[in-house]
Design a protein around this nucleic acid. Structure first.
Lengths: 336, 336
DNA sequence: GTGAAAGCGCTAACAT
DNA sequence: ATGTTAGCGCTTTCAC
């Protein structure tokens, strides 16, 4: 236990302190610390050692101020417990890192207050924000000012500078034609709906179903495996079991399959189940989950590219080119 | 499309630009932007509008420099695709956000070069780093200098300032006594081993097995569901099926269960399966996975608290108090 | 090989 | 209510 410093204050050690203690100019310290040329190797070693002893760490703010900012993107995620989100985060982080950017992560709590707090906290520290509207991000372009907000899976939100959304009508087309070719006639869609009406995904299925004249029943449940399990369980009791069930996402498909199995019915013989997202876990279930799969690498690459273009001014906020639409691929496994 | 600015340079808009255009001092601009008192409400509105038009965004570096840094912690994760990691990240982010800290996330690629790059990139931008040794973090205390490195699940690493590790001997004790009370006699541990020898987890099981005189066979596989599936599949062909299988983690348990089911054997009747981690997916499998479960909230809370104490100097790097050990809880579900 | 001076963009403290 | 001065910690000239 030695005294930490001449001054008992908790002030951080600056380059000046090192310079003074070392009997050199701050310039020499910079050169030593940053491995710059034009310094006696001997001096360099001495100063480096001294800096270490003193516990000197360059201020990232001062450095950033003088050298120009490195890009830093905030990412706001509604829940990390649904593998869908980590899958996207992973890809975004990957593509951002390749560009030398930083990603700072915020998980938005469910209640709006905590959420706004998180956002106001993150906003001043980043050059752009990527997130889902489910995280309540949509309401906060105000806090961001000129910095671009890119919204995932929330088409046509006017406050966003850019968006990456998904062609659910295409997904519906893939799914329905597959189900029909299987001879399924009592098709249901298990939605995780907003307070009123249907989710964007369900709406696309409704539209496509209408288009091709196939009846689809819409159910609703809380958007978790447990929610889906409960909903499908009570559906089973009604004896109105559909012979095909499409779910809002893969996690809900898992819950649905548990409920169907618990009722002693067989997937896919008595009921096809088709999920959406394509998270890795689907392949590990029994039966393995057929699903509408996203190319997560593509999602991340597209999103980061969009942010970059927005930041560079190559694309202006809200422009047509700032709206990207990606498609799902149908992955046939055992559950359908 | 109007010309963006008098100067075609891509220089960012600063407070001075706003002040000049508005015919006021930079002070007034600060007051307007930051909602500070002592400014005519009319002036404030005018300046704010002007700032918006000009596309002015305060430099976070200048602001940080003058106001004192907000804490920023880097988190380096080996893979986001195993839910174990997002579960911990989620909790860490939560506890960090409550303190007003930022978390910047890096996923360390498998190859060492990319990894070192990621770390050197993140290092100057953070006040501390949290991560797993699997991410290669251990080798880089050098880059961090005085800033604390807290290693998760890597006990006794000398380079780390702090560590949060797990009492695997306790876990082994829980598991083995449970299995023995079930009358299991041919117990195997499916490890995901480092190049040589056993993982830390497997070592604890070996030790505890020796302690109580129970024979345990150690197997090895690549640490993924697929790796476990392959390994257990070939095990099934030997007809040397154990009657209890403990796996390195939950993800491997999933693969193991698939392999056992594929061979037409029943879990848990013919073979108990017990995983480790307690990730949410375990409960959604069929049969539901019994596992050694971590309290992820506790993991995050402990880790962030440790970082805080290290940053405040309440605990010195490498001290005894900087080593925290957490315990698993045995969760009995259907697979055992 | 080293140091002195200037300035990055912002805000706290002190005028006016 | 507004402006002036000074300085945060660092690096980039440019001089020696």
């Amino acid at each position: 236990m030695m005294a930490p410093s001449p001054d008992s204050k908790n002030r951080r050690v600056t380059i000046k302190d090192v310079a003074r203690e070392g009997g050199v100019s701050t310039q020499t310290v910079t050169r030593a610390i940053n491995d710059m040329p034009g310094i006696n190797i001997h001096t360099k070693d001495r100063i480096r050692k001294l800096a270490e002893e003193l516990g000197y760490t360059p201020s990232r703010f001062a450095k950033g101020l003088v050298q120009g900012a490195g890009t830093c993107v905030g990412m706001v995620v509604p829940e990390l417990t649904n593998s869908y989100f980590p899958a996207v985060v992973s890809s975004v982080v990957h593509h951002a890192t390749r560009r030398g950017w930083q990603i700072t992560l915020n998980e938005s709590a469910s209640d709006p207050d905590t959420m706004m707090l998180a956002i106001e906290q993150i906003a001043p520290q980043v050059d752009a924000v990527i997130g889902w509207s489910g995280s309540g991000l949509a309401t906060c372009q105000r806090v961001l000012g000129r910095r671009p907000l890119v919204l995932l899976d929330h088409p046509e939100y006017p406050g966003a500078a850019g968006e990456v959304s998904f062609d659910y009508v295409h997904a519906a087309q893939l799914t329905l034609s597959h189900l029909i070719s299987q001879g399924r006639t009592r098709i249901s869609y298990l939605d995780s709906a907003p307070p009123l009406g249907l989710s964007v995904r369900a709406q696309a299925f409704a539209r496509q179903a209408g288009e091709i004249g196939v009846p689809v029943t819409f159910l609703n449940a809380e958007g978790s495996a447990e929610g889906a399990r409960t909903a499908v369980s009570s559906l089973m009791e009604t004896n109105l079991l559909p012979d095909a069930l499409i779910t809002f996402n893969d996690v809900m498909a898992i819950g649905a399959m548990k409920a169907i199995a618990a009722a002693g019915k067989s997937v896919p013989r008595e009921c096809s189940v088709i999920g959406m997202d394509g998270i890795a876990i689907g392949e590990l279930l029994t039966p393995e989950l057929s699903t509408l799969s996203l190319d997560f690498n593509e999602v991340g690459a597209t999103t980061v590219q969009l942010v970059e273009d927005l930041l560079d001014g190559k694309i202006s906020p809200g422009a047509m080119e700032a709206k990207r639409t990606l498609r799902h691929r149908m992955v046939y496994r055992q559950s359908s």
